[in-house]
Design a binder for these strands. Sequence first.
DNA 1: CGGTCATTGTTCGGACTCCTAACTATTCAC
DNA 2: GTGAATAGTTAGGAGTCCGAACAATGACCG
Lengths: 218, 218
Amino acid sequence: MTAIFDSISEPLSRRVTAGLAKIGLVLRSRAWKGAGLAGVTPTQGQALALLREAPQGMKLAALAHLLGVSAPTASETVSALVAKQLAEKTPGSDRRSLTLKLTQQGETIALRTADWPDFLGTAVETLDPSEQAAFLRALVKIIRALQENGDIPVQRMCVTCRHFRPYAHPGSPTPHHCAFVDAPFADRHLRLNCPEQEPAPAEQRDAAWTRFAAPAGA
Amino acid sequence: MTAIFDSISEPLSRRVTAGLAKIGLVLRSRAWKGAGLAGVTPTQGQALALLREAPQGMKLAALAHLLGVSAPTASETVSALVAKQLAEKTPGSDRRSLTLKLTQQGETIALRTADWPDFLGTAVETLDPSEQAAFLRALVKIIRALQENGDIPVQRMCVTCRHFRPYAHPGSPTPHHCAFVDAPFADRHLRLNCPEQEPAPAEQRDAAWTRFAAPAGA
DNA sequence: CGGTCATTGTTCGGACTCCTAACTATTCAC
DNA sequence: GTGAATAGTTAGGAGTCCGAACAATGACCG
């Protein structure tokens, strides 16, 4: 039953990564055009978005880690934002560290630049809802694997959260449960960046993952 | 049956694009580290990969378009590659245009740098095969939508190919058919970059797409 | 033939991205 | 206290990216 294409094609996972890379490429190139209009460049825009998600402020090293760049690059980027009066450096806990915060203007710009990948959202919406949900579920799995491997900074995802109860309601259309808001939910509600997320202890996390990742969800 | 999460969450498509953006971010940052070892930078590596797929050579403007950058940027990038003796400029059809080709060394490096997203391949392989296939299918849909919208250069995909016969074998595990090699295939074999691809005329393309995209494939 | 006009690619100036290496200031550990 | 770790900056260099202005060449038209 093996098709000829199984032997003559590149591996499936390779074609998938190629596809993801193509999307990454266009995101990068769009970021220059789109974010450029708002007067900020891609990395600066990314930094604004990250700072917006951390209203209590963020250290430079943390920002560098999240951006996936070295400390000097982050330092330069922040300096540029400060020069544009979109962010400010406030004293941190130490006298050597500092806390980064957005200014009023920064908030405004951050909201505006958060829209730049809208063209991609439009493309995603050509998938029907159940396909989007399955796609999101697969993305979560991929990102978790990257995180587990140390290839990506730790994300505030449901699947590694203390309040996540996968398949607490088997058979239901909303089979999972969030113990924080005490409500059931489905794959389509999975979050990558929940403000309420708290990392679960290792043992709980592994058990939850095993249960969540089972093919049939059984 | 609407869950509380439907009202308090960001839209599904937005969370999907956020996930794709996160993967794009790590690809970018990895490209600096990984490709840096081979002595080429991300854009240069990307250019090598594109040139490798076009053994007959490529014009500068075409490369710029595929890279998603302006002509000056492409010109600089190519100059860097030529200086490193990884590519060469040969006369084109005109006396103003030129044809870009890889050198022997360039081939070697292109093969090496083609490996850099391997860490992502490893993560993708944590999905079971049927989930990978569904993921690829969804990626194809997204990329097609981007292409249709002019957000991404035209790709050599099965779904827009003259030889593509979606669901020519309904009910079979390999329901589609490629008229070029005259063999059946499945979603998991879909290609994003087939050397044999020839764009189908508009009418055929639309008919094939309608048939392919139908939820049940019926 | 000569005059436009579009095309192909380059150069220029400037801002940003990104790194490693070297540096200052501060804090912690013993 | 002295020395090691930590937080961030500066310096230098290669690369990425753009728009504007430029030289060629080719195409078209009167």
